[in-house]
């Protein structure tokens, strides 16, 4: 077996997700190469070379791959895929954007959001918002797979893979980058944080989300939100935890003013410890919470912050 892992980049640097995808590749077994594609990605390539279990890092450093647009990235993967039995990427918005193009052009199916590896051709993946887990077997010659990073613990960084430049440059007259607005935050990224504190509709408005800031500071937590809070305009959509937002599995998840719709639970129920704070003691969130505290969040949050 030979596996190609498409590296995730965040502002040009290697994103934490990649170490989880390499772990999934190790569970499949075989030679593991990592593809780092973008513009000005030498530092990311060096970081990828340190991931445990990686044999070779293939570096496509070219303006054609800036911002990892789907069309040139798909063409690049098609060019390289012939050397591999499996191509993996994280189920990030980049992996989801790019990998189905490779699958279609190679005339194979894609397995999305894989959370477990049974063998080199049999995988576990959640369906119906995680309310069922499917075991699927692929007889395609090339397995194209996106990995849900919460399903695999990250590999270490004591490796020393070789690096090799990829000369192929994809033509792309169809799409061009216009602009990007990334939320600036000193907090850990939602997907990788050890502690996540999320607010829901019960927060009342966007201003009240500041009540979560002090607690997040003390716990080194990322701040998330339910879809209801996002739809109500309290906070931007990139904070959404749930079926169609971020999937998180931190050590500690604190749900504040969140009732616990199945779509939200789909995004956080694999957290190690769940705390729910809600004034409605019948709220479904309490059915999955290890510790529930019924009460007014506007009294509880300041008290919690002062006592932590």
């Amino acid at each position: 077996m030979s596996i190609l892992v498409l590296a995730d980049l965040h502002e040009g640097q290697l994103a934490g997700a990649t170490a989880h995808v390499v772990a999934a590749a190790q569970a499949i077994g075989g030679d593991i190469d990592v593809l780092v594609a973008g513009e000005g990605v030498q530092a990311a390539a060096e970081a990828a070379a340190k991931l445990d279990g990686v044999s070779k890092v293939r570096v496509a450093d070219n303006a054609a791959y800036a911002h990892q647009l789907a069309e040139p990235m798909g063409a690049l993967l098609v060019e390289l895929a012939g050397d591999y039995t499996h191509v993996l990427a994280s189920a990030s918005t980049t992996g989801k954007n790019v990998l189905p193009r490779l699958a279609a052009l190679k005339d194979v199916s894609q397995l999305s959001d894989v959370i477990g590896v049974e063998s080199a051709d049999t995988f576990l993946r959640p369906i119906y918002a995680g309310n069922a887990i499917a075991t699927v077997k692929s007889d395609d010659a090339l397995k194209v797979i996106t990995i849900r990073t919460t399903g695999f613990d990250a590999v270490g960084t004591s490796g020393s893979a070789t690096t090799e430049a990829v000369d192929f440059v994809a033509d792309n007259a169809q799409s061009s980058f216009v602009k990007q607005e990334l939320a600036q935050s000193d907090r850990p990224e939602l997907g990788g944080a050890k502690v996540v504190i999320s607010g829901g509709r019960g927060m009342g408005n966007g201003e009240n989300f500041k009540l979560l800031d002090g607690i997040a500071d003390k716990l080194g937590a990322a701040i998330g939100a339910s879809r209801a809070a996002v739809d109500a305009g309290f906070v931007p959509n990139d904070m959404q935890v749930g079926q169609t937002g971020k999937i998180v599995a931190p050590e500690l998840y604190i749900a504040v003013g969140i009732s616990g719709a199945i779509q939200h639970l789909a995004g956080m129920k694999d957290s190690k410890v769940i705390v729910a704070i809600n004034k409605d003691e019948e709220a479904p969130i309490f059915q999955v919470a290890d510790y529930g505290l019924v009460g007014d969040l506007f009294e509880i949050l300041p008290e919690l912050e002062s006592k932590l």
């Binding site: 918005t93 216009v178 602009k179 990007q180 990139d238």
Partner: peptide, 10 residues
Amino acid sequence: EIDGGLQTVA
């Protein structure tokens, strides 16, 4: 809608 924010493509 991308991880961490918004991206516009033409």
